[in-house]
Amino acid sequence: MAAYETALEDDDEVRDRDYVGSFARGLEVIKVFNRHTPRRTLSEVAEASGMTRATVRRFLLTLVREGYAETDGKYFNLKPKILEIGFSALSSMNIWDIAQPIMNALSANVQESCFAAVLDGDSVIYVARATSNRIMNVGISIGSRTPAHCVSTGRVLLAALPDAEFHSYLEKAKLHKFTPNTVTSKVKLRELVEETRLRGWSIVDQELEISLRSISVPIRDRDGKVVAALNVCCPAERVTPQDINSRILSAMLEASKDITRALQA
């Protein structure tokens, strides 16, 4: 037993030596910038990341020097070059090569913007998109990050988590209110996620933005594991909940099955 405990301690020491804390903190600084707070002051980044101003300043100025961020002297924001990091990862995932033409067909069918998203901590990241031929499309870009609790993609992905992981998410999550419709009760959110798990899809009505409705269904790999959420976003003035429940939902479920079938080919 003593030898076993020593081996465990040695493994922990190796992991600690292999862990680059400064790199991890730098990634946390990048994640502070999102769709709702694309520009932040040094103090705001420090508060959001839980780091000192001096530490954050070094990370931000490094990002600026390397071309991943810019500043006007007061505010900092990320530059498009930051997407190269995400695109490098996405290009290695052939699921999106398979999913993209199916998403294009879905968007053309329902005449609305279509997206795919994955879960990252307490947020979702949009990793693929398809737009319709309408003049006005929902302005979500690849790489955009939104809080999981108030979007349909988030609820589908949270519903796919093992119970222990979902419980951990609920304990740590800060459910910010973005509109009068945003669910901020953890009890209510648990109920909605359980409902999503049972029926296999989620509709969210104007919880992130007023006038924006969305529906999401899971995308499964060849083993049946949920790997992403397929999403259609609709302007509320153009698409009613009844339209979403009937016309759009059926098309999305079929598209999700098509992606899974293509992955198995």
Rank of each mutant, 00 (worst) to 15 (best):
A116T: 12
D16Q: 15
L253V: 13
L8I: 05
L161V: 05
G21A: 11
T240V: 00
H167R: 15
L61M: 12
A54M: 14
Y75V: 01
S144Q: 03
I85K: 09
E70S: 14
L78H: 03
D258T: 06
A116H: 03
A130S: 15
N231M: 06
S123P: 00
Y75T: 05
S113F: 03
H176Q: 07
I30A: 10
R247V: 11
F166Y: 12
M103S: 07
V64R: 10
S216C: 07
A3F: 00
S91T: 13
A128M: 07
A251W: 03
L27Q: 08
R220K: 14
T52E: 15
R129I: 01
K177P: 01
E70W: 10
S132E: 04
A128D: 14
L83T: 15
A265R: 14
R17I: 11
L42R: 05
K74C: 07
R199M: 04
L158M: 13
V45N: 04
T179G: 03
K74T: 11
E28V: 00
G73L: 05
L119Q: 09
G86A: 09
S144R: 04
L249D: 00
T41H: 05
Y68F: 13
R40S: 06
T179Q: 06
A160N: 00
F115S: 01
E237I: 11
K31R: 14
S22H: 05
T55N: 06
D243W: 06
R15F: 13
G73C: 02
L192D: 05
